[in-house]
Design a protein around this nucleic acid. Structure first.
Lengths: 118, 118
DNA sequence: TCAGATATATCCATCCCGGATACAACGAGA
DNA sequence: TCTCGTTGTATCCGGGATGGATATATCTGA
């Protein structure tokens, strides 16, 4: 099932969606999330981040959220973003693809045996 | 651990490595493998495939294998490829990254609840 | 021998990435 | 309140990857 290929998703775009799946956040924090999630092996530069955010917003996958930070002091520069319903669906679909690729990798013996790290 | 970011790997490059992790194969078959593994949601075009193979070979991640097809009739057009030791290491490292991203997605509730497919 | 499928390879326009740069707004301290 | 270093957003540019179209050669079957 699911043979169709609706709208493709670049790696950077998925990582941004994944960071926002935890909850609303502003750009600079998203960079930190991605670096944290990937244990530092993926680090988005500002160019990639803000361009990706703009594209995701234009495609209706994320939307700007009206500040509303309760614990943080409020900073007029920050722009908060959150997933839309569509954004969550697309992120979920991509996550299932990664899950499948990971399973295939395990199947091929790439994960079970300890491959020496380069 | 593993904070360094040695050589990055494009999605197409990883999918080719993953297909070859199952065993040696020729280009056209790799396309089929990738489509099969991803349930048709990822389909490499010939341009991407052969350019990616050439780059992976130049980087020492894959190498050409001397035909040696036992069950198949032999076809002079085909060029077989297989993973090198380095290629397997790099593929394994990327697989672990995908595993981590998948876990993060599950953590954010993208996999547990059934998100309606778009 | 001829037609169609298989298989590899290259070309080209488009898109994406990462780093550099610029600029605005915040907080701390004198 | 003035200044300074930091935080945060945004744009620009060069290098590289993508994918679709095209070209060409080889295999198979009629």
């Amino acid at each position: 099932m699911a043979k169709g290929n609706p709208p493709p998703l670049t790696p950077a775009a998925f990582q941004v969606l994944l960071a926002l799946a935890r909850g609303r956040a502003h750009g600079y924090r998203i960079m930190g999330f991605v670096s944290e999630i990937t244990d530092g092996s993926v680090q988005l530069g500002p160019g990639t981040l803000y361009r990706t955010l703009a594209r995701l917003a234009a495609d209706g996958l994320v939307e700007e959220a009206p500040d509303m930070s309760e614990d943080e002091p409020h900073d007029a520069r920050r722009r908060y973003y959150q997933l839309t319903g569509l954004g969550r669906q697309v992120a979920a679909r991509e996550a299932r693809l990664l899950e499948r690729l990971t399973a295939a990798a395990a199947d091929a013996g790439l994960l079970s045996r300890q491959e020496k790290s380069a």
